[in-house]
Design a protein around this nucleic acid. Structure first.
Lengths: 237, 237
DNA sequence: TTCAGGCTCCCCATATCTGGTGAGGCCAGG
DNA sequence: CCTGGCCTCACCAGATATGGGGAGCCTGAA
């Protein structure tokens, strides 16, 4: 078992492209004998990337309906740190329940464990295992394999980060200290006058920072700039 | 060995306070027979928090000199995802070399492995093991224990997050679908007119959503509301 | 030394946002 | 049945942000 884990990690580490990661999810699914294994993420530019065993129909449907924005698994994991069983999530809204019904109809499975993974620059990814079984069987599976799945999830993300960095050559828009401070105060809800007072500079000067940050971040307005700075992990509120 | 890992994880999970985490680092140090084990982080408010086996002298020195801002381990890990051996870091600057000399003099150790861990809301922590030994011995140690250390690092962070969240009691205000959509478009940089057009409603209506979201989030203005929605994981950009 | 980049300050006119108040229709749960 | 939450629309006046211009100082790297 332990050797098998090593072998799977090795396979992921040696993946030459996204296709190999796809194959890795299939091997993992077979190895753990579950319905699905999925790894996916949204990078800093908003491009989606994923590898998994879901049916193409479901993936298409998911993208078409922009379910990313309301999927309780995504929303729940964004707020958490540790692996989360789907049962612990909030399925109370009507939208969530109809989503769940549809997902099950597409063969996603009624049980799931999702592991949130965060990388530099606000990167966020999700590694998920799902299956069709009763609560007890699932609890047993989770109990036995959680640790291994966490390790594998990290291997996936490591490799995916390699692909990304090779691909788009990380724009890395470093903001100057004052620009970061300005963004931070704005993100905290201060208006320009207040932020300027806090930074002990004139409001005019503050504006220069905000505009500089906007340009560096390729943002359309202040709110956009703050949103980007936040989601790229440049500032923390 | 495996049972020992479980026991250590259990101990961390059951930690009642920061003091217990401190004890955990000591146990880990003894168990792995290394010079030091350290877990530390900077939370969203900029408060430092840490548990570890470094001498008080070194900790004081570190804080006094504000080494956090130039420590190559910190700077390197901020840009990486996977565990990093200190040898892989950039020690080329003069400041870095003198820092290293000083650290070794304080008994920190000449070898180290640091595991960066990221949580929700930009939280960043570091779990480090360090020792005094030759490269070969260290490579062997890393090879054998990296996985376990990653798991333990996660346990530490999980518990630390519990401590933090226990303090500030996040109420988690739910936004309605339209409010979420409004926040999302604003986070994407659209102004009210554009967002309204996108949502196919009047700008007046959109304003109602924005104000509702502002109030629910306890935000002072639109930018603040978007920032909160983002950092609480309510929306995705 | 030169030069780029960060930090600081200023003006003007227009676009945009904000705060308050008011109203009607729809749907689910008590 | 009725209350509460959600979705939709409207007006107004004042506060705030935006876009573009110009200018001087300081520091560290080429």
């Amino acid at each position: 078992m332990q050797e098998k884990l090593e072998a799977l990690c090795q396979f992921v580490q040696n993946a030459a492209d996204v296709g190999d990661l796809q194959v890795a999810t299939e091997r993992l699914r077979d190895h753990y004998d579950v319905a699905h294994i999925i790894y996916h993420w949204v990078n800093s530019v908003g491009e989606r990337f994923g590898a998994g065993t879901y049916s193409q129909d479901w993936v298409d449907r998911y993208v078409e309906k922009d379910y990313l924005r309301m999927d309780p698994v995504i929303l729940g994991c964004l707020q958490r740190f540790n692996p989360v069983d789907w049962k612990e999530l909030d399925w109370s809204s009507r939208a969530a329940r109809s989503f769940l019904r549809e997902a099950v109809a597409f063969g996603v499975g009624n049980q799931g464990l999702s592991i949130p993974i965060r990388g530099p620059s606000g990167q966020f990814a999700l590694f998920t295992a799902s299956d069709n079984c009763d609560d007890y069987a699932w609890a047993t599976f989770v109990d036995e394999n959680m640790r291994d799945l966490m390790i594998i999830a990290h291997e996936f993300n490591k490799r995916a980060l390699d692909f990304e960095q090779g691909g788009d050559s990380a724009p890395a828009p470093a903001l100057s200290p004052r620009e970061l401070a300005a963004m931070t105060y704005l993100a905290k809800g201060l208006n320009r006058a207040q932020a300027a007072k806090e930074m002990e500079i004139s409001e005019h000067t503050l504006r220069v920072y905000i505009e500089a940050a906007r340009h560096k971040l390729g943002a359309l307005n202040t709110t956009h700039a703050v949103a980007r700075a936040l989601s790229r992990g440049l500032i923390v509120v």
